[in-house]
């Protein structure tokens, strides 16, 4: 295991895993509490359209994916809030439209076609040093956001309509969380891939929710579980020569199963 840490690409992967794991653990807790898990699925798949378009235009794929993720996130939230469209239908439309656009633009790109599988299922060992710095900036921003605003976010997640009667900056906070969610999803693509990103946002918060505790404790526990599962998965994938994204998800599932087993033995109350 020590030998692995001597490789620069593995250290990049490890730092990236810890930083994005922390961010996803925090954002995921809000997403699960607000019951908007499938919006994050829609955003993830919509971002593939931006990735394909960026390839076609010769731009940074991550930039294209980030712009599409943000556009999809705000479009789904705005259009469904106005009552003109059903939220689940919008998610389905953005989900399929993004994937279709991505496949078409990558197909139309002349010359070498990038390996789609690395975006669909992730390959953390291709994370570059600049992406680690990007993850550090995003991770720090998300931690700061949740440290400052965890209480109002908690109240919004519990009862949004009641919180709105207080005429405080609810929309501003929701915009902040949406931006965090979209950017987390994009950075998480290298780790878990488009298809498995949703597991980062749902399994660690679900494990944290199995233990009694307030929202703040669940935020911390979810981030810790996310980091622990990702690091375990990363080492397991490198040692057993398995795909990193799928191995990390499998580690999350093992932690969830262990949590259930603890509950059956009466160690965890829920």
């Amino acid at each position: 295991m020590h030998e692995l840490l001597e490789y620069g690409f593995f250290r990049n992967a490890l730092w990236s895993t810890l930083l994005i794991g922390t961010g996803c653990g925090l954002v995921g807790t809000y997403i699960v509490a607000r019951r908007v898990v499938f919006i994050s699925g829609g955003i993830t798949h919509a971002s593939f359209g931006g990735l394909g378009l960026a390839y076609f235009l010769g731009l940074s794929p991550l930039l294209g994916a980030a712009l599409f993720a943000l556009a999809a996130a705000f479009s789904i939230l705005r259009l469904s809030a106005g009552g003109r469209f059903r939220e689940d239908s919008l998610i389905g439309i953005f989900w399929s439209a993004g994937m279709a656009m991505g496949v078409l633009f990558i197909y139309l790109t002349p010359g070498y076609a990038p390996n789609l599988l690395s975006y669909l299922f992730g390959n953390i060992l291709t994370v570059t040093a600049s992406q680690v710095w990007l993850s550090l900036a995003l991770g720090a921003a998300i931690v700061l956001f949740f440290v400052l605003f965890h209480r109002p976010l908690f109240y919004i997640a519990f009862d949004r309509e009641y919180s709105r009667t207080h005429h405080v900056a609810i929309e501003w906070l929701e915009t902040g969380v949406t931006v965090c969610m979209a950017l987390c999803i994009v950075l998480c693509m290298k780790l878990a891939g488009i298809i498995l990103v949703i597991s980062y946002l749902t399994i660690p918060p679900t494990i944290a929710a199995r233990f009694r505790g307030n929202f703040k404790q669940q935020l911390v526990l979810s981030a810790a579980v996310s980091c622990a599962g990702s690091v375990a998965g990363l080492f397991a994938s490198a040692l057993l020569d398995l795909p990193s994204g799928a191995t990390i998800v499998f580690c999350f599932l093992l932690l969830l199963a262990a949590c259930h087993a603890m509950r059956r033995r009466g160690k965890a109350p829920r």
Binding site: A33, F154, F158, S163, G213
Partner: peptide
């Protein structure tokens, strides 16, 4: 199943 106590619910009335 939302992780909020009775006291926290009342405190949310002080949001404004």
């Amino acid at each position: 199943r939302f992780p909020i106590s009775v006291e926290e619910v009342v405190l949310s009335g002080l949001l404004s």
